[in-house]
Design a protein around this nucleic acid. Structure first.
Lengths: 123, 123
DNA sequence: CTTGTCGCTTGCTTTTTGCAAGTCAAAAGG
DNA sequence: CCTTTTGACTTGCAAAAAGCAAGCGACAAG
């Protein structure tokens, strides 16, 4: 008889940092949100990002984000049902978090390049 | 015969967000860094935080952060060897990330309270 | 000389991740 | 029509990480 652990809904502590990390504190979620900020809307577009998120992880993260209210999805066709994902205002409020992470990465993680720098290299 | 996965040292992509998350994108690392910002320096102090980080995870995170140059530790006594941890400038540069996460959490994660609010309740 | 504390380490179970393959409906090509 | 392809997932399984409890070494206190 195994009793369940902390339910996914219960925060680890009242700390706002901990509460945020309960939702977005893993290796993939913020990368999906980054893609959404870049205007990506469809499953295949997220898969195409260079980090190579596994398909099952992506599907699970998208439904989690939708249930948490950071992302909303609207069908852009039915039969077969397909939908486009986009950030809600709640999700868009993460912009400063992404910006701070990006700034830190550029300063302290060697080999990182912004989209602009990568685009400039191709030219 | 199992081929090895991505080595821990190789970033998933040149994106600075991805590069940052490779180092600090998990459920615990940023909470340890938060504690360091609050002035905690010793193993037992991190363990005492309300989130309840497991002991082995804490030990592993501290050595990882030290190897990554975000944290430095200095012995405050020898025999038995004990050391105090503190943020390096590289670690301190994460302050905007923590601040953005805290701000988002306070706005969007119900039930979160700042340290000031929690302190005020006790009074 | 026993008990307690601090800072970890070890062993083991549960959960999550990651990869590959499969599915399902429809659009595309012949 | 009848394959083949494509997009969006789902499923199965092995590997890795997380989580829990217990143990350990060096002292300090009683």
């Amino acid at each position: 008889m195994s009793r369940s652990r902390r339910p996914a809904s219960a925060p680890r502590s009242p700390c706002p940092v901990a509460g945020s990390l309960d939702l977005i504190g893993d290796r993939w979620t913020l990368l999906v949100i980054r893609d959404l900020f870049w205007g990506k809307t469809r499953y295949g577009e997220f898969l195409a990002s260079p980090e190579g998120i596994p398909t099952n992880i992506l599907a699970e993260r998208l439904t989690r984000l939708e249930m948490a209210g950071l992302v909303r999805s609207a069908p852009y066709q039915r039969r077969p049902p397909r939908h486009a994902y986009e950030l809600t205002p709640k999700g868009r409020d993460l912009q400063p978090v992404l910006a701070a992470l990006a700034k830190w990465g550029r300063r302290h993680v060697p080999g990182t390049k912004t989209r602009d720098e990568l685009a400039a290299e191709k030219a």
